[in-house]
């Protein structure tokens, strides 16, 4: 992880919409894995509470789940312009301010992934009235890694979503 920060800034802005690629080929370069978890409060014998992440086996309305995308460059060449795009399922609401990714710029979409911008720069029209977009309006999150990912290095992107 630390190595990521040693490299120069490079941004990737190409649209990912509508692209279909042979995953087998790409998997030879980057290993990408997603997990979904939720927080569980554990109380130890002394009554102290600790929060740990567990598999999201039981999820009911009102719960928050945490999606974590990890990637690892398993090729022998640095990967540049790494961009992770994650849709926010229609049944979920993004938790404001929860997106996290070391070394990344985080942008959002409110139109199904066509246009991305920083959270404060998006707006939506509701009943004919234009208003600033709220977290629940976001349809996609995008992490734009600012540095190249050297061979053998890893990265992570994470966000939290609430089940209404």
């Amino acid at each position: 992880m630390k190595t990521i920060h040693q490299f120069g800034i490079c941004m990737l802005l190409t649209s990912l919409a509508g692209t279909a690629f042979a995953q087998d080929a790409a998997q030879g370069h980057l290993l990408v894995k997603t997990v979904v978890q939720k927080e569980e409060v554990v109380v130890d014998a002394s009554g102290e509470e600790t929060v740990r992440l567990v598999d999201a086996k039981v999820v009911v309305p009102g719960d928050e789940v945490i999606y974590t995308v990890t990637f690892e460059n398993i090729s022998d060449t640095a990967a540049e312009n790494v961009v992770i795009t994650n849709p926010i399922a229609a049944d979920l609401e993004y938790v404001d301010g929860s997106a996290f990714g070391p070394g990344s710029d985080i942008v959002f979409s409110v139109d199904g992934g066509t246009m991305f911008a920083a959270a404060g720069e998006l707006s939506v029209a509701e009943n004919g009235v234009v208003r600033p977009a709220e977290a629940k309006d976001f349809t996609h999150i995008r992490w734009e890694m600012q540095n190249e990912i050297p061979a053998g290095s890893q990265g992570v992107a994470r966000f939290r979503a609430r089940l209404p």
Binding site: L12, V32, V36, Y67, T77, A79, E80, V83, T85, L92
Partner: peptide, 11 residues
């Protein structure tokens, strides 16, 4: 509710 992340990169 399904979730799949997409990753693009140059190598």
């Amino acid at each position: 509710i399904d979730n799949t992340a997409q990753v693009s990169f140059d190598i």
